[in-house]
Design a binder for these strands. Sequence first.
DNA 1: ATGCTTGGATAGTGACACTCTCCAACGAGG
DNA 2: CCTCGTTGGAGAGTGTCACTATCCAAGCAT
Lengths: 215, 215
Amino acid sequence: MRLAELSERSGVTTATIKYYLREGLLHPGRRVTATQSEYDEEHLRRLRLVRALIQVGRIPVASAREVLAALQEEDLDRNERLGTAVWALPHGPAPDESDPATEVGRRTADALMDRLGWSYGRAYEAPPAPAYGMLVTAIAALHRLGYPCSAEDLEPYGRALELLAVTDLDLVERYRTPEEQVEAAVALTVLYEPVLLSLRRLAEAEESRRRFGGR
Amino acid sequence: MRLAELSERSGVTTATIKYYLREGLLHPGRRVTATQSEYDEEHLRRLRLVRALIQVGRIPVASAREVLAALQEEDLDRNERLGTAVWALPHGPAPDESDPATEVGRRTADALMDRLGWSYGRAYEAPPAPAYGMLVTAIAALHRLGYPCSAEDLEPYGRALELLAVTDLDLVERYRTPEEQVEAAVALTVLYEPVLLSLRRLAEAEESRRRFGGR
DNA sequence: ATGCTTGGATAGTGACACTCTCCAACGAGG
DNA sequence: CCTCGTTGGAGAGTGTCACTATCCAAGCAT
């Protein structure tokens, strides 16, 4: 199919598709003549993934390119490819080392990892996973605002997410090839984030109404 | 204290504080002379909250202003104030009604709310909570990519978040005044989001290593 | 033949979160 | 009393990001 058809079937304007081609998020089409290229179903699929990552997952274009590149690293195993892809996701500001609250955040995060028995993302692992820095930054911010949270407070969150991670990966293992599995894992990691956040907000609204609700 | 001291104690530059003052995120200080104002501990506290919302919670300045305004709505009860504040948080693109996948997302979301017994955010509630639209958009995107998820698949997520919402609001109820409670609820809603996401990514990395990990 | 379409390159747009530059009014040291 | 650096306020400028609009020459369709 031509650019115009790819645009129509995906709902993305040709100008935006050209932009993604330029940025390397989409492979160039098969050149038919000097001025025309042919795109296939794989391009359409990739384009939908890109859109989902950028619009629903709110991932910057540059990060999306890295994530997609990781999916195709031939010489890594599933675990490494997935790790590389998730590693490239945005993860907010790095912990501010000049702030004493960061130290508290780091200790709390480490204590939490110990309680949960998780080996990833420890401070003494070099380099720690970006998600670990994200956790430290958030705990530090809470602490600075006067909402201290201990490893004990956070353990139930970790346990709950541990269970959900098991069901997520069960879903991933339904796919046959490692390629499909890694792509599914990335799509699920990114696209379940808004699901998780929206369900949390709805759950809190529900619980708030139950406790504080008048009328 | 003067602007310079507020800046030093908060770690935010004077230029940025002036910007927040202009944008109405911070109340103006008490005017001492025609060219000088006095700020107090309350300003410092507010400034730290603003920074946490914007930098850690990644909330746009305009949304932060609305969220903060909701905290001080005198004629609303706790439940309404919290609802208004959470309502003002960013929630991604609205569902694309021209896309048939949205219809699937909406039906799945409604079925999920039924299973969970939640009354908020139904499609037939007018207007539905923004978090409901966020959920529909995400389910639709998953569907479009060929990762269908049913209400049954999502129910464990809802149950898990229901439990966490209970512990969140237990924490909130430790504060005495409704004002403190609402502020705490907003801070916890926003700042626990990165905690949740980072723990999920770490949990998935852990589980992926357990299943796929070589070495 | 001719007029619309295509792919590619370049430049422009609008939103956003600051950040810089000025300026007159202070206020502390000499 | 008189500098002279500092302060708060206002407006314009900056850098980034995700597009988006404009050109252009080379097709293709009629």
